[in-house]
Computed example of a mutant assay.
Amino acid sequence: MSREERLVAYVDGELEAADRAAFEREMSADPALAAEVALQQRLGARIAEAYAPVLDEPVPAGLVAAASVANDRGRPRFGIAQWAAMAACLVVGVLAGRAAMPQPGPLVVRDGALVARGGLAQALTTQLAAESGPVKLGVSFRSGDGRYCRSFQSAADRLAGVACREADRWVARTTTAWTPSASPDYRTAGSDAPPEVLAAVDAMIAGEPLDAAAERAARAKAWRP
């Protein structure tokens, strides 16, 4: 199964438990893949909402009966030996997956959202835009829904984006691949931000960006609205 096929199967909930876990580990190590999954999930939710009235209609009893008969024909029957063999294969697969597990990236998929972790989460929580560090913080602002949001660029992860504070975590609203500028004039995240990040900030921001004093005040109250 190709990566695109696995992506579609994951979004549709058609992957087996072991395959789903392996795909989620892959997403944790690949922000671009995780962003694509999140996009497909949002599109799926919109489609489901649009067709909800049709999907909620009761299925005709005759069709249900016909489907039940078809599904019962030739249905395999597993004995203890077959179930034991399947369980053994599952254990081997889990152990092999753990051995090959990639190092987690700066974002992890939790409850269908891309959540910042590790150094990225630490920088978003504690670092001011004027301060230097492995992660460069650009614009801090309030979004239209009242949340605090911050643009960021991580050279080590070659990742840029915008994350917003939701409860006690930072959820990525936009992510894109990014390569640091080689120019010695590079100073802040804002000066080298990808167009996708600038466009996201422009679309989300409500009012003016936070100045240094407002950033400190927001940090002091843990970025809670």
Rank of each mutant, 00 (worst) to 15 (best):
V59E: 03
A130S: 15
A45H: 12
P209K: 01
L124Q: 04
A87I: 11
D145Y: 03
W170K: 11
P102N: 05
D192T: 09
V69D: 08
A130G: 14
A172C: 10
A18Q: 10
A156F: 09
T188N: 15
P76C: 12
R3I: 02
R187C: 13
V197Y: 06
L124C: 06
V64L: 14
A100V: 02
A67C: 03
E36A: 01
E14T: 13
W223E: 10
D30M: 00
E49V: 01
L198A: 08
P102W: 05
A96H: 13
A113W: 14
L95Y: 05
L55V: 08
M27K: 09
A213F: 04
G79H: 00
R187W: 07
L95C: 14
G119I: 02
E196T: 07
V59K: 00
I205K: 01
A17P: 10
R75N: 05
G105M: 06
E131S: 11
Q103A: 11
T188I: 12
V69F: 09
R224I: 01
V69S: 10
A217Y: 03
P225A: 11
R117P: 09
A155R: 10
V59Q: 02
L90W: 15
E49D: 07
A155L: 11
R75Q: 11
E49A: 13
R169A: 15
E4N: 06
E26Y: 04
Q153I: 01
K221S: 06
Q122D: 10
F23M: 01
A217N: 01
G74T: 04
D12W: 05
A96G: 06
V115P: 00
E4I: 08
V108S: 14
L95R: 08
S154V: 06
V64A: 12
P184W: 15
G44E: 00
A113H: 14
A200C: 04
A182M: 12
P184C: 14
A96P: 06
W83T: 14
F78M: 10
A52N: 08
D211L: 02
P106A: 09
W223P: 04
A189E: 13
C149K: 00
R117D: 11
A213Q: 10
R150Q: 05
V69R: 06
L33C: 08
V135W: 02
R158L: 07
T176L: 09
R158H: 11
V64R: 14
W223R: 13
P225T: 13
A52L: 10
A35T: 09
R216W: 06
S132F: 07
S28K: 01
F78N: 02
P76H: 14
M101N: 11
K136C: 09
G161V: 08
K136H: 08
Q40P: 00
A66D: 07
A17S: 12
E215T: 12
S68K: 11
P180C: 15
V115M: 02
N71V: 07
G138W: 01
A193N: 03
D157W: 15
A213D: 06
Q127I: 15
